[in-house]
């Protein structure tokens, strides 16, 4: 009987771990670039965390604003202190849902185009956003990437008139994460 219970629980746990598979990373890359005729600004963040629930397609991202590295120290300073106010708002998050999750077969290698929609919070302001991206399934791991545009103005980020021409009104954001299965 005891053995049966053990076997049963093993089966159940084994089953749930396949069903409720989660994928996770803490080394995601987020890059943004602002391109104007006057200046090109680019910053990289290598420490985005991302969790993807394969069962229901929920996806969450979180990044630390201060972990963005710029080429020029002055830009980084202005970005943190004047625009993003990262002392007050240290994080940016995204909580969303892959709308066509049922189209993805996580057990088979392949490339899938996905649509993700959800809430993005930057600078303490939450906006509904939606974008398309790719998920590549390979050897049980996922590589997901997406590129989308965002407006600093939407998140109440004020750019002073003096540098208005140096910073694009539409900032391009690229996200690339390699997700590994996560069993806990």
């Amino acid at each position: 009987m005891k053995r049966f219970a053990l076997l049963f629980s093993l089966l159940v746990f084994g089953f749930t771990s396949i069903q409720a598979q989660k994928y996770f990373t803490r080394d995601g890359k987020v890059t943004f670039s602002s391109d104007t005729p006057i200046e090109k600004i680019e910053a990289h963040n290598q420490k985005a965390t991302c969790v993807l629930n394969a069962a229901d397609g929920r996806m969450e991202f979180a990044i630390l604003i201060k972990a963005f590295q710029f080429e020029k120290a002055l830009m980084q300073e202005h970005f943190n202190e004047n625009y993003m106010e990262s002392g007050t708002y240290p994080k940016a998050t995204f909580k969303g849902q892959i709308s066509n999750i049922e189209a993805i077969d996580f057990s088979k290698d392949g490339n899938y185009e996905v649509t993700v929609a959800g809430d993005m919070t930057i600078h303490g302001v939450t906006q509904a956003v939606s974008t398309t991206g790719n998920i590549l399934v390979k050897d049980g791991k996922l590589s997901a990437d997406a590129t989308f545009e965002t407006k600093p103005g939407d998140y109440d980020i004020k750019i002073p008139a003096v540098v208005r021409k140096n910073i694009a009104e539409i900032v391009q954001v690229t996200v690339a994460v390699d997700l590994a299965p996560f069993n806990k």
């Binding site: 803490r26 420490k47 979180a62 604003i65 201060k66 972990a67 590295q69």
Partner: peptide, 14 residues
């Protein structure tokens, strides 16, 4: 390094 805050882990860059 420079402390940038906490997500799930505490993160230090540079």
């Amino acid at each position: 390094g420079v402390c940038t805050g906490m997500l799930m882990d505490v993160v230090l860059v540079r």
